[in-house]
């Protein structure tokens, strides 16, 4: 299967010390809507910028659509990028934004642009600075879609939008993916934003990729087991513990396994996507006791 983004031990360090992304290895197949989930500051924006060619990796390698994400017009034309908070030129009108897109992109789809502008109430003569947050996001998305990229990257596209605008934004995005075959990578710190739209998920925590895979496969291979208290060491070899919690009587595990679970002692319940991600976020490295929350001077 074609990969749109392939990262190998990818790392990015800002300044001397701060690693924004470290040892990131991930393959993102083509034809998916990929959700990049993680808490704020996990390195999502850095990974997206590396994929868009905005940043140069400090270590490792990344290929996007089969080539290095170089700063060349050819590669730029194939990759769309909608930055966080959907920046637009406040002094320019909607029409001027579309003109900008038409002039700067070889594969510009003027029909799509004007159709979307009309549908989302983007009056051509209005200055972009006067648009509502949702309309601004739609304008930025229109520019990203009408350039007809093979891969569209969106950095926290709905984080600053109200629920209605969020839904409209996702509707527009999904409609475009249904109509034109292209891959999408979008990030969010909220799983709920991505639950319906993503069929591939990458969870990024503390600048590392914790899990990546097709949503369906992830949901099929992760289970919550509840039952009498039991040591993790006594679980079958094929079951990888994602997170565990115990009371004196009861144990609750979230495990990843390809095989069905037959043990009658367990009550097995399926996990939703959000619970699955939370299980990974909750995970602490083995042997590392939960550090209590403390305010440091």
């Amino acid at each position: 299967m074609n990969t749109v983004v392939q990262a190998r031990q990818l790392g990015k360090r800002y300044g001397r010390r701060r690693w924004a992304l470290r040892d990131c290895t991930v393959d993102i197949p083509a034809g998916h809507v990929v959700g990049l989930v993680g808490p704020n500051g996990a390195g999502k924006t850095t990974l997206l910028k590396l994929a868009a060619g905005r940043l140069e990796p400090t270590s490792g390698a990344i290929t996007v659509l089969g080539g290095p994400p170089a700063d060349t017009p050819g590669q730029l034309a194939r990759v769309g990028f909608v930055a966080q908070d959907a920046p637009v030129y406040t002094q320019l009108t909607v029409a001027e934004h579309l003109r900008l897109g038409a002039r700067l992109n070889p594969r510009w789809d003027a029909g799509l642009a004007s159709e979307r502008a009309a549908r989302f109430g983007l009056t051509p003569a209005h200055r972009a600075g006067r648009l509502s947050g949702g309309q601004r996001a739609q304008l930025a998305l229109t520019l990203g879609l009408a350039k007809r990229p093979e891969l569209l990257i969106l950095d926290e596209p709905v984080a600053s939008l109200d629920p209605l605008a969020r839904r409209e934004f996702m509707q527009g995005l999904m409609e475009a993916t249904a109509e034109h075959a292209f891959s999408v990578v979008l990030s969010s710190h909220l799983v709920s934003d991505l639950e319906r739209v993503c069929d591939f998920l990458v969870v990024l925590v503390d600048s590392r990729v914790l899990v990546a895979g097709e949503v369906e496969t992830l949901l099929a291979t992760h289970h919550r087991l509840t039952g009498p208290r039991r040591d993790p060491g006594r679980l079958p070899a094929g079951q990888q513990v994602i997170c565990a919690s115990h009371t004196d009587r009861q144990s609750t595990y979230v495990v990843r396994t390809d095989a069905p679970i037959h043990d009658p002692a367990w009550t097995v319940t399926p996990l939703g996507l959000e619970d699955l991600v939370l299980a990974y976020l909750d995970r602490r490295p083995a042997g590392d006791p939960r550090t209590p929350l403390a305010v440091r001077p």
Binding site: A52, R54, D71, T72, P73, L76, A77, G80, F81, V82, A83, Q84, D85, P87, V88, Y89, T90, L100, G101, L104, N105, P106, A140, L143, G144, K147
Partner: peptide
């Protein structure tokens, strides 16, 4: 400050250009 350089760079135009 406005982040619009990101919008400009998202078009098929290199940063150098």
């Amino acid at each position: 400050e406005a982040g619009t350089h990101l919008l400009a760079w998202s078009q098929s135009v290199t940063r150098r250009r």
